Every structure is written in structure tokens, then in C-alpha cells.
Amino acid sequence: MSRQPPNAAILVSFPNADAIVDPLASFILKAQKEAVEKKGRFTIALSGGSLPKMLTGLVGNPAVKWDKWQVFYVDERAVPLDHADSNHLSCTNYLFSKVPIPQDNIHTLDTTLLNDLEELSDAYEKLLIREFAQKDAARFPVFDLILLGMGPDGHTASLFHGHELLAEEDRWIACLEDSPKPPPKRITFTYPVINHAARVVFVVTGKEKAEMLSQVLDNPEAGLPPSRVKPVFPGQLYWFVDDAAAAAVQYARTPFKI
């Protein structure tokens, strides 16, 4: 992982979605190794959508130190954990049900609070405070790695174009009852949390995202939600995309290397 200037995104394109799986696993393992050597734990935040299926390269990999992982969700739908819309269920089906990660290391919603979004988001923020503030004394948590996706409409996490949450500067976790994409009730990391991560990786595949990806990377002044992800130096930003998603992008590509 080479050093880059502040806020400079690194775009890596692969022939197809399947070709991303193993390089992404290698990238995650490199981040894990550095974090565990430095502080004895690896903090990672996952998204839903198509991302969980891209994590299958970690299954059966002996280099993964599952007992060192502390897993959070970048955003989550206010539904039971076994609901079809749950990001946790998707991650469990593709990854966690197939690996020996301690269940206590996976930090999920408090489903007893689903009827009160403010309490739900406050409770999840307290999980982050317990993991980060008491250990790192930071204004915002500093994740070792945050993995994001991007919808065809240009949303990332549960941050949607034109929504008031794009301007949130203080809270770690925010809630919304009016998501333009169902289900409407969700909680999400805010930009200060995302942008304080050591590494942020977008994983974007499919021709249906080509136009939006070009807008995000080639026209950042448009202010689409992914364009607002600008990690604080020395944080690093990567885009792992397939050629179909990158078909219209003019932004310079970088060869993949660890």
C-alpha cells in the first residue's frame, strides 16, 4: 500500500467482479496485519448491498486473525437481524457463518430499540464510544478500514444526495426515517467517522453504475455523496471497481499492488 498525497483517491479496475475478490481479501489482510502489529486489534466497518458477497475471499484463509477483529456496520436498516433487508444478515450469509469469528466481536443493532430511531442510533454510537473513545481518546473513531459501496443513484452508506445528513458534523451515528430507498428507517455513520478512517475502500461493480461512477470521480464538484468521502491525512481512499463500472471514467487508474 503506497503512500499517496492527502485525499487523492486510488482507482484500481479489474476485468470483472469476480476478479476483485482475491485482491480485496489481500488488501484487507494487509490492513489487518498492520493494525494487529500496532495495537493488537483490527477495527473494520462493513456495508451491505453487493459488498458482502465480495468478501468471500476471506473464507478459509488461515491468515485471518478472526479473534482480533472488531466488526461494525457502516449503516444498517431498522429491521430485525434475520430480516431480508438486514445488512448483518447479508454479511452473515456470505461471510460470518463460514468463519470462526467470535460473535461478541460483531457489533449489531440493539433490536429492542427498533421503534425509536434516536435511541437506536444513540445505542450504536455508544458501542463505538466503548471501542474507540476509551482506548484511543479520539474526537472521532479511527477505523483501520471502512468498506463502502455505491448505489446506482449515487448514495453510499445511508447518505443520500440532497439529504440533510450530508451536513452532519458532530454525531458519530445518525438516523433517518425518510430514506429514498426502502426500507425508509435506517442508521448510518456520518462523514466525520468515515473520513477519519485510516483506509476507506469503495467496491463498485456493474455497468448500471458506470454513469454515476464517472460523475463521482470525474466531476467531484457536483457533491454526490461518495465525492464527500475525503479521508483526513494520512487516511487513504481506494476504489476497487470492475471494467464495466469504470467504462465511462476518465480518472487515472493505478495497477493493483500490495
Rank of each mutant, 00 (worst) to 15 (best):
N115V: 09
I10E: 13
A245W: 03
V59G: 02
N87C: 14
G48V: 09
T111A: 08
N16I: 04
L81H: 06
S90T: 07
L109T: 05
L46R: 00
F140S: 04
A78I: 03
S50P: 06
E76C: 00
A9I: 03
G60F: 07
R77N: 08
T111Q: 14
Q103F: 07
I101C: 06
V201C: 15
C175H: 15
D110R: 10
A17N: 00
A222C: 06
V241A: 10
K135H: 15
R171M: 05
Q134A: 13
K38P: 00
L159Y: 04
I106F: 05
K207D: 10
A137I: 05
Q250D: 15
H107C: 08
V64L: 04
L24V: 00
I173C: 01
I20W: 06
L224W: 12
Q236A: 12
V216W: 07
N16Y: 02
A167I: 04
A84M: 02
R186E: 02
V74Y: 02
Y73S: 11
D122Q: 14
T156P: 01
F14P: 01
S86W: 05
T43A: 15
K185E: 00
P141D: 07
A31H: 03
W66M: 13
A210L: 00
T112W: 06
K98R: 15
S86K: 09
H196P: 00
P141C: 09
R186H: 09
H83G: 09
L117R: 08
H196T: 00
V232E: 14
A167F: 09
K126I: 12
V36W: 05
L114I: 03
L147A: 09
G60K: 01
E118R: 14
A252M: 09
S2V: 07
G48E: 02
G154A: 01
S227M: 03
W66H: 08
A210Y: 01
T205M: 09
T43R: 14
D122E: 13
M54A: 09
V99M: 07
F202M: 08
R199W: 05
V79T: 12
D218G: 03
